[in-house]
């Protein structure tokens, strides 16, 4: 058993499930948006009406949270592989998590105003 506190999940399996569920959600959101662009005449009004829909707002927030989880676990895995100095890894991890977290906050603020 290798102990680790820096990743998101409580165990290896927990990490594994979170990163995959988050990944599936990100893919679904991307496919949905692509479909929207292909089947609609996208302008300010159609875009605004899409995001005024409560379902779409929830879907977007869930996707932003998925992004945060996916970045957190995924980048932690990559960094623990390639960046061996602990201090540097800590700073990089912090910066990446902060960036992902700010996307979530920014997304919430934007959706609030639609």
């Amino acid at each position: 058993m290798v102990n680790n506190a820096a990743t998101l999940g409580r165990s290896g399996v927990h990490d594994f499930i979170i990163i995959r569920v988050a990944g599936i959600n990100l893919a679904l959101y991307a496919i949905f948006l692509l479909g929207f662009f292909l089947t609609n005449d996208v302008n300010y009004l159609s875009w605004k009406s899409l995001f005024s829909n409560l379902g779409m707002q929830v879907f977007t927030i869930i996707t932003l949270l998925s992004l945060l989880a996916h970045v957190w676990i995924g980048m932690w895995q990559v960094l623990t592989d390639y960046v061996k100095p602990v201090g540097l890894r800590f700073i990089l991890q912090l910066a990446l998590n902060a960036a992902a977290f700010s996307y979530v906050i920014a997304g919430l603020v934007i959706l609030w105003r639609v």
Binding site: M1, V2, N3, S11, G12, V13, D15
Partner: peptide
């Protein structure tokens, strides 16, 4: 249980 961490198997 011994294997269920982020490294042992899941790497």
């Amino acid at each position: 249980s011994e294997l269920d961490d982020a490294f042992s198997v899941f790497r």
